[in-house]
Structures are given as structure tokens and as C-alpha cells.
Design a protein around this nucleic acid. Structure first.
Length: 799
DNA sequence: CAGTGAGCGAGCTTCCGCTTGACTT
């Protein structure tokens, strides 16, 4: 009866569908004939969203479950590794995975065959092995399958080509896991003892930190060089007066003297067109998104943080709008390529379509997934939050553009010269012959590259045509300091070094922040003056102008503790935080995967010298740079130090055993390494009595939340417009009256004898008694609510 | 909301990579 049902199902499948269900038909026939025992098929994948999709492709006798990533990890007690027994790992099922495992166990009981369909990479292979170990699967009824894309054809291919678990690959993962544990759990405790508790170090995070610290030092040591840039505006002879040609001299002039002498010689000089050159250039679209390029572009184009991008991408993935968001592959499935060609042809015409595959260039890529792309390329926009909509649009454009034709651009280069001067002016104009992919998407260039994307028009010009100079300007320019890392540019650098994985880029940078190693913030720039010389109507006028430079927006700045930890690790564990450490050890992991090396031999070769250094460091070293003597305080004659205290960096006047010694916290942005004596002494000018108002003192200081003034019992933030060191009484009084007005506005009702107030807050009206806040239930009017009701509400909400 | 910087010395902190919710305000 039952077998007849199976056969009927199989036949109807065969009729309805040609491809995948051949397999199902075969499988069902097998079960009908008793070749495999009667029962369900269980497929285990890593992600529940993936499970849901796959289930749709498979018949009803397939159950698809998810392992939610790894189900086991090394025990957290001690090392979780028995070093004596050849680094034997002690694996444990973590508490949050116990339910997953028991669910899977129950599903296994009901299944005749288990298909382990975790990702086709080192971690995926290990997940498959842990599953088979924990679920006690037997070889006969267990099959390892992989697919790179979630399509019927790919799944069909996978099912037709099952294999066994690749134990060499599993051992390569085990080596990776054990190495990271050894490094992390031996280095971190050294930091607890030598620097501060709860700090951390690891193969990935410590290198990421080092990049930020070294960049900061490059910036601090950078000396801006000044040079002169010369631009000219010309009017072609015979054209209307309004026609202007903007040209520049590509070479820089190193000194003011050189620039001025050029302008002098240009006085009354005759300029003419020396050459006109046209060159056709092609531009090719960028590859489809990987995790790292998505993070970079979402940051450049949309201003999203890493976590914002990843959260939105996760939502899009779970809603079925995009493919998997943690990938290092730029590969697109055949299905996607065809869909892209169709969509592009429909939207823009056939000549805009060009099917391409991109080779993944990043170091250490494992390519278990497709590139990040829309699940359905014909869907140009989706519903959802504004962030999700924007991110989807970005992914759609990037994917579509990657399958579009090259853009063809004609660049015209005109040189303008004079017998009187040596240097030639150049004017350029870009004309787009065929926009191709540019119709949809242009990749954002590295920051501050200065390349202008404006299309300049040049008037018709001919060789030897005279060009009358309207004005020639020499402006002082300064060389640019190296840029501080943004989250996105740090990810880019880590990926280039082959350090970290798509799933860890964002969390690693979060960790650096949590440890107090780095801070992401914006800082205002500084003013600087520059000289400008303008030759106009035969006269050179000089002027001094002012510009803002060094504005930093959402950049990663190292903190003192991060600098200290980096210096400590570089001094004692050079090889671990070497930029090439990961790349080198990955080579060994590859050999383990290829069966050429034994995993615990690789670990032993690393561990023996490493552990020796750990012991030596524990016994001898002191953290470097812990205290800096800045000089002598002229007022007291005592020494001024800066150092790390219990709560952060501080300045100290007087020796440690001086009972009169004084402390002040360093301000935001000040580093122990770079603070000056003046900067440190200035800190002690606060708190400062600005003056009095109605007979009471106004005090200015810097607190937990920045600069503020205190008047009576109110604290008023000074914000960006006032400096606590220099703010004057008049400004303070203005702030105090504004503050009082705001406070009065907030008050709806007041019962002073009870200490109760009804206030207007950010989220609407609320009740305040002492320091506690209470919600006003719906339906009660805050304007008229009476004391008895309020007391009731307070009593109720206290519980 | 608006500091702190001493000393008992218990018991804890920490890694990287896979994956999602479960929490509070």
C-alpha cells in the first residue's frame, strides 16, 4: 500500500518535472524496491533560511534541518586542549546548541539517510564531521554533499555525487581552531597580568589593531610638504569672451620662488595650442559583491557601518531577497547570469549586456558560496526598511552592472604652451561614447583620490590657436597625510592580507572597540593658511587664504591601551603579529588538507617555541611606555607625568608618594604618546570658576559626557561652540537662561511636596519621582492627571 | 548624567569561525 503510494508520487513527479525529480524518482524507486530502507531523508545545512529554500525544491519525503553553524567547540575551561596527548581537543556542545542537537538527534532517528550538506570549505567540512560524530551517524546511511548555489540543478548534481567526509580537510580545520585557541588563550592572560585584566589578543584582532596603531604613528610623524600648483584660465582667440578653458600644469612647483618666477615670465606671454590628442579608453565594471566589497561600498555610498550593513543583509537574506551575505566569492550561478542578461536586455537593450565571470582574487578565499546578488534579478526594488531598500538597490546595481558592456570614453588632452615659459598647461575633457555599465553603477574610488568625475566640455580648438590667459593662479598645496582607517578600509586591508573571514570582519572590529583599544569617531579639522598668487591683467597679487584640513569622519583612532598592547606584543611576539603570519600558517593548513602534513605536527612545531616565549615573557617583561615624564610644572616645581590609570589615561603632578599629588584625566583625543607638557598642564586649569550669576558661582569643567558648566544644581553641556577653558560669563548666562526655559517647557505638572513631577520627554510625557521614571498608561491625560492616580501608577510600576 | 586614581587578593576575564535569536532600554 505504502510502496504503491511512493511509486505513484514518483511517477507524478516525473511527469511534472524533468530534471531534479529524476533523482527523486530514482531514490523513491530504490526505497520502493527496498534498496534503501523505507523512511525519510534528512538533509542538514548550516543556515535555517537555506533549509527553508531547499525544502521547497525537494519532495515531501525530505526533511531539511539546520545546524545553525558549528554545533561544538573547544571547552572553555582551561585550554580545551590536552597538550600532552598531542594537542587532543576537548570538544563540547555549548548550551545554546543543546536544543539544536537534540532536535537533530530526533530527526536522525526518523530518517533512513542523512545528507550532510554543510558548506564546501574547511569549516563546513568540520561541521559535517562534528555532526556525524555527535549524532553517531553510520557511514552506510550518511552522505556528504555540497552545492555552491541553491538551484534545483545544483542540488540535483549534489545528490547524484555524494562522497565521504574528507578527514584531511577536517583536520586542517582542527589545526586552525587549535592554533587560534592556543594563541588567544596564552597571550590574553599575559596581558591581564602585565597590562590590565579582561584584555585580549589573537591572531586576527592583534594584527588589525597593529594596523591602526602603525597608521596613527605614520600620521603623527608625517610632515606636510608644501608645493605650488598652477592653474590657468584661457580664452581661445576668436571665440566669445565667455568661453573659458580650464587648464593646469601637471608638475608641482617646489618653492614659492619657482612658482613666482613662472608667473613673472608669464606676464604678457603669448600662449597657443600645442597639441590636441584624443584617446579612447575602456572602463570595465567591478566584480559582484563579496562581504568585504559590500561592506566597503555600503560605507562609501550609503554611509553604513559594518554592523548596519550586515544586519540589513541578514534581513534581506532571510526574506529571500538576496543570496548568502557572508561570502568571499565573486562567482555567479549560470541561472543568475542568464537572468542578468535577460533583465539587462529588457531594460537597456541587447548591446548593454555582456556576460562575464570574475575570478576571485582575495587571498585565502574558500568560495563556498556565490557572490552576494539579488535572488531574482528582475526585481529592481523590494519592500522593507529604508536601510534594507537602499542596500538591496546597491546589490542589484552592482550585480547588474557586472554583467553589462564596457563603457567607452574619449579623453581629449590639449596642451597649451608659450615660448616664454618651460612648462606646458594641460586641459582635459572626457566624453562618454558608450556608457555601458556606467548607466547603472560606478564603483567609488579610494578616498581622497581627488579624481573628478565631472565631464568637462572643451570648445573646438585647433593647433596653434592663440589662447589668451584670463588669469593664472599659483596656490600653495600641502601633501596629504596617510588616511586613518575606516571600518571599511580596515576590512579591505585585512582581506588583502588574508586575515579574518567574511563572518568575522565586523565582529573583530567591534571587539577592538569593546576592549578599549580603538574608538570610532569624528574629529573636527584644523585651520591652516596657504599662500596664493594670482596673475591677472598683467599684475601679480598675493594673498593668504585659509582652509580646513584633517577633518575625520567615522575613523578608527587607537586609544592609549591599544598602543600599549601593540607595543607589548610587537616587542615580545613579533612573529605572531607579523602581517604574514596568517598567510604562512594557511600554507601549512593547505598541506594538512592535501594529506601532506599531519595536523598536530604543524601545531607542535608552532607551539614549542611559542610557549617558550610565553613563559619567558611572563617571567621577565614589563609593559613598555607605561609612564612618560613630560617635564616640570613651573608653578610647583614638581614633575609632570602621564600614564595609564585604573580608569584610563591621566596626567599627574608630583611623585607617586607625594601626598599632595594631583590628577586629571586626559581629554578625548589626547594620547600619552603625543601629549605635550603644555597640554597636560592646561588640564589642571579645570574645574574653573567662570564668574557668578545672581550671587552663585558658575563652574566650567569636563565630565564623563564632555565639557559642561554647572550652575546651582544643573549641568549644562557646552557643546562644540564653547571651550570650557575660555568660556565667558555672558555666554554662560545665555546658556543658563536657555536651559531654564527648556526645563520649564518640559514641566507639565508639579507636586513639590511629594517630589513628583509630570514631564515631557523624548518619548512623550512621563512621571518623575526622585530619580525614578514612570510611564503614564494610555488613556490618561498628563495635563489633568491627579496626584492620587499618579501615586497609584507609581505603586503599580514599582513592582 | 557630569569620578575616579588605596588595598585586602576571591574568582573571572580571553581566541576565531560557523550560525541566529534572546535579551533590555
Amino acid at each position: 500500500m505504502l510502496s504503491a503510494f511512493y511509486l505513484r508520487c514518483a511517477l507524478s513527479y516525473k511527469i511534472r518535472n524533468k530534471n531534479l525529480d529524476n533523482t527523486l524518482f530514482y531514490l523513491l524507486l530504490c526505497s520502493h524496491q527496498g534498496l534503501i530502507s523505507m523512511g525519510e531523508h534528512l538533509v542538514i545545512v548550516e543556515s535555517p533560511a537555506k533549509a527553508k529554500t531547499i525544502e521547497k525544491f525537494l519532495g515531501s519525503n525530505y526533511t531539511v534541518k539546520s545546524s545553525f553553524g558549528h554545533i561544538r567547540d573547544l571547552s572553555k575551561k582551561n585550554l580545551g586542549i590536552d597538550i600532552e596527548k598531542g594537542f587532543e581537543p576537548d570538544y563540547l556542545i555549548s548550551d545554546d546548541k543543546k536544543k539544536v542537537v537534540s532536535d537533530l538527534k530526533a530527526a536522525v532517528k526518523k530518517a533512513a539517510t542523512v545528507w550532510l550538506a554543510s558548506d564546501e570549505d574547511r569549516e563546513g567540512e568540520a561541521i559535517a564531521w562534528h555532526l556525524s560524530d555527535v549524532l553517531k551517524l553510520d557511514k552506510e546511511n550518511t552522505k556528504r554533499i555540497v552545492f555552491h548555489e541553491i538551484t534545483k540543478v545544483a542540488i540535483q548534481n549534489a545528490i547524484e555525487n555524494p562522497r565521504q567526509i574528507d578527514m584531511d580537510l577536517v583536520m586542517a580545520q582542527q589545526a586552525r581552531r587549535v592554533l587560534d585557541r592556543l594563541v588567544g588563550f596564552e597571550l590574553s592572560p599575559i596581558l591581564w597580568r602585565k597590562v590590565k585584566p579582561k584584555l585580549s589578543a589573537g591572531r586576527v584582532q592583534s594584527v588589525a589593531l597593529r594596523l591602526i596603531v602603525e597608521r596613527e604613528r605614520e600620521i603623527q610623524n608625517f610632515k606636510a610638504k608644501s608645493s605650488y600648483k598652477i592653474d590657468g584660465i584661457f580664452n581661445p582667440e576668436g571665440s566669445a569672451k565667455s568661453v573659458k578653458v580650464y587648464a593646469e600644469i601637471p608638475e608641482k612647483f617646489n618653492t614659492e620662488k619657482d612658482a613666482l618666477s613662472f608667473l613673472e615670465k608669464s606676464k604678457g606671454a603669448r600662449f597657443n595650442v600645442a597639441s590636441i590628442e584624443e584617446k579612447e579608453t575602456k572602463r570595465t565594471p567591478a566584480a559582484p559583491f563579496t562581504t568585504s566589497t559590500l561592506q566597503q561600498e555600503a560605507s562609501h555610498k550609503l554611509g553604513f557601518s559594518l554592523s548596519q550593513t550586515m544586519r540589513a543583509a541578514q534581513n534581506l537574506y532571510e526574506a529571500g531577497h538576496i543570496t548568502y551575505m557572508r561570502t568571499d566569492s565573486t562567482n555567479l550561478s549560470k541561472l543568475a547570469l542568464a537572468a542578468a542578461a535577460k533583465t539587462i536586455t529588457e531594460l537597456y537593450g541587447k548591446n548593454y549586456s555582456k556576460t562575464r565571470q570574475y575570478a576571485t582574487k582575495s587571498k585565502g578565499a574558500q568560495e563556498a558560496h556565490e557572490a552576494i546578488r539579488p535572488a531574482y534579478l528582475n526585481i529592481t526594488e523590494i519592500g522593507g526598511s529604508p536601510v534594507e531598500k537602499k542596500l538591496y538597490a546597491l546589490i542589484w546595481k552592482r550585480t547588474i552592472a557586472s554583467q553589462m558592456a564596457d563603457a567607452s570614453i574619449i579623453r581629449t588632452l590639449v596642451t597649451i604652451e608659450s615660448d616664454s615659459v618651460k612648462h606646458k598647461f594641460e586641459a582635459t575633457a572626457d566624453k562618454v561614447l558608450f556608457d555601458g555599465f556606467l548607466k547603472v553603477y560606478m564603483e567609488t574610488k579610494e578616498e581622497d583620490s581627488g579624481e573628478k568625475e565631472i565631464e568637462f566640455n572643451l570648445p573646438e580648438l585647433r593647433i596653434d590657436q592663440e589662447m589668451n590667459p584670463i588669469s593664472i593662479k599659483a596656490a600653495e598645496k600641502f601633501s596629504q597625510k596617510p588616511p586613518r582607517y575606516t571600518e571599511a578600509s580596515l576590512v579591505k586591508r585585512l582581506e588583502e592580507l588574508g586575515i579574518g573571514r567574511p563572518s568575522t570582519y565586523a565582529p573583530t572590529i567591534t571587539t577592538l572597540g569593546q576592549r578599549g583599544y580603538v574608538i570610532k569617531e569624528s574629529r573636527p579639522g584644523n585651520e591652516r593658511s596657504y599662500k596664493e598668487f594670482l596673475l591677472e591683467k598683467g599684475e601679480i597679487k598675493s594673498s593668504v587664504k585659509s582652509e580646513t584640513w584633517g577633518v575625520e569622519k567615522n575613523k578608527l583612532f587607537p586609544e592609549d591601551i591599544g598602543i600599549l598592547v601593540t607595543d607589548f606584543l610587537t616587542a615580545n611576539f613579533t612573529s605572531i603579529i607579523d602581517y604574514n603570519f596568517t598567510a604562512k600558517i594557511e600554507g601549512d593548513f593547505d598541506k594538512i588538507a592535501a594529506g601532506e602534513l599531519k595536523w598536530n605536527k604543524v601545531i607542535a612545531d608552532f607551539y614549542t617555541p611559542f610557549h617558550e616565549t610565553v613563559d619567558k615573557t611572563l617571567a621577565t617583561s614589563r609593559p613598555t611606555n607605561a609612564v612618560r615624564l613630560l617635564g616640570v610644572d613651573p608653578k610647583s616645581g614638581k614633575n609632570v607625568y602621564v600614564r595609564l590609570g585604573r580608569f584610563g589615561p591621566l596626567a599627574q603632578i608630583g611623585e607617586a608618594d607625594d601626598p599632595q599629588k594631583k590628577y586629571m584625566s586626559l581629554s578625548k583625543g589626547q594620547l600619552i604618546e603625543t601629549i605635550t607638557l603644555e597640554g597636560a598642564l592646561k588640564l589642571f586649569n579645570l574645574p574653573r570658576t567662570v564668574g557668578d550669576y545672581n550671587g552663585e558661582d558658575i563652574i566650567a569643567a569636563i565630565g564623563k559626557f564632555g565639557p559642561y558648566i554647572k550652575y546651582r544644581s544643573s549641568f549644562i553641556s557646552l557643546g562644540k561652540d564653547y571651550d570650557p577653558y575660555t568660556v565667558e560669563v555672558a555666554d554662560c548666562i545665555k546658556l543658563i537662561t536657555e536651559h531654564a526655559k527648556k526645563e520649564a517647557n518640559k514641566k507639565i505638572q508639579s507636586f513639590p511636596e511629594e517630589g513628583i513631577e509630570v514631564l515631557r520627554g523624548r518619548f512623550g510625557a512621563y512621571i518623575k519621582k526622585g530619580k525614578e521614571n514612570y510611564k503614564i498608561p494610555k488613556g490618561k491625560d498628563p495635563e489633568t492627571i491627579d496626584l492620587a492616580t499618579i501615586k497609584e501608577i507609581i505603586l503599580k510600576q514599582k513592582k
